Computed example of a mutant assay.
Amino acid sequence: MANMQLSSSTALAVRDPWALVPSLGNLDAYISAVNRLPMLSAEDESRLARRLRDQQDLDAAGRLVLSHLRLVVSVARQYLGYGLPQGDLIQEGNVGLMKAVKRFDPDQGVRLVSYALHWIKAEIHEYILKNWRVVKVATTKAQRKLFFNLRSMKRQMKGEAADGATHRAGLTEAEIDRVAAELNVRREDVIEMETRFAGGDVALEPGGDDDDESFAPIAYLADDRQEPTRAIEARRRDELAGPGLLRALDALDARSRRIVEERWLKVNDDGSGGMTLHELAAEYGVSAERIRQIEVAAMKKMKKALVEAA
């Protein structure tokens, strides 16, 4: 595997502290290094993307790429089941990431992580399509010999069939033993290769865009539970529901906070909620409508605080 770094051919000039990915021959060291790279805030990402778009600033492009290398590693892990090298999957994903950075428009109102996901997966899918073939089972010299000789041996055995009877497509047990003996491979290898020949290649994606009923491996290759954007959304949701909510409550005056907590956050031992509008109105000596108005104003203020913290 080639060194996992941005070489000079990418023309991405990277300055400290972003030049944290040295020339590495070890994949684990590379993954550890990219996970230590700092992430960009929405403001920094937008600023850098505009510098790249308007001024062709290659340093800005380098920062955008490096801050998203961990996303490529996460996506590449979803495709390890194909037996292809993880380093190659990551390298192809990095190509997709650089294509996404080149085409990213910060004025579209989406984060680069969402936009780049399509390009990263597209490059990895293309790599799998080009490399996942029946020949991949032939990893040893004996298996390669089996791969290149099995069909000719089947035709020969079919020609030897007695009385000119039509030979069945599959191999008999005796024929499997004969092939294994002549080519010096295991019976299991003969059976597996024969199965692969009989099944042929499977298209990774549906054959036609107009076929609504089509279903292909692309629909179930990736584990959606580990999909990066969903993981980011889940962490952000947990943040807003915990510390974010507390910060929003701290932005309220004492009366508004108590009204919100009684109306929306309090749960009694019997499962019932907090105080009603009329109960709060009686306590504060105002009308129920006034309590409702205070509640509405408090909720708007909390929403604004949560948006600013996002």
Rank of each mutant, 00 (worst) to 15 (best):
G96V: 03
G96K: 00
G96W: 00
G96S: 03
L97K: 03
L97D: 01
K99N: 05
V101K: 01
V101T: 07
V101S: 02
V101G: 06
V101H: 01
F104H: 01
D105G: 03
P106M: 07
P106I: 04
P106C: 07
P106F: 02
D107I: 06
D107P: 01
D107S: 12
Q108S: 06
G109P: 04
G109K: 05
G109A: 05
G109F: 05
V110G: 02
V110E: 12
V110W: 07
R111M: 02
V113G: 01
V113W: 03
S114A: 10
Y115H: 11
Y115W: 13
A116P: 12
L117W: 03
H118M: 11
W119K: 09
I124W: 00
I124L: 05
H125Y: 12
H125R: 11
H125F: 12
Y127H: 14
Y127S: 00
I128F: 07
L129P: 00
L129K: 14
K130M: 14
K130W: 07
N131P: 07
W132F: 13
R133M: 05
V134S: 09
V135H: 06
V135G: 03
V135I: 12
V137D: 15
V137G: 09
T139P: 01
T139I: 08
T140P: 01
T140R: 11
T140H: 08
T140N: 04
A142V: 03
A142S: 15
A142P: 04
A142T: 11
Q143T: 08
Q143S: 06
R144S: 13
R144Q: 14
R144V: 12
R144Y: 10
L146H: 04
F147D: 04
F147V: 10
F147P: 00
F147M: 10
N149G: 10
N149T: 11
N149I: 05
N149R: 15
S152T: 15
K154L: 13
K154D: 03
R155E: 13
Q156D: 13
Q156Y: 13
Q156S: 09
Q156A: 15
M157A: 10
M157W: 09
K158P: 00
G159A: 14
G159K: 15
E160K: 14
A161W: 12
A161R: 15
A162F: 12
A165V: 13
T166Q: 09
T166P: 08
H167A: 11
H167L: 06
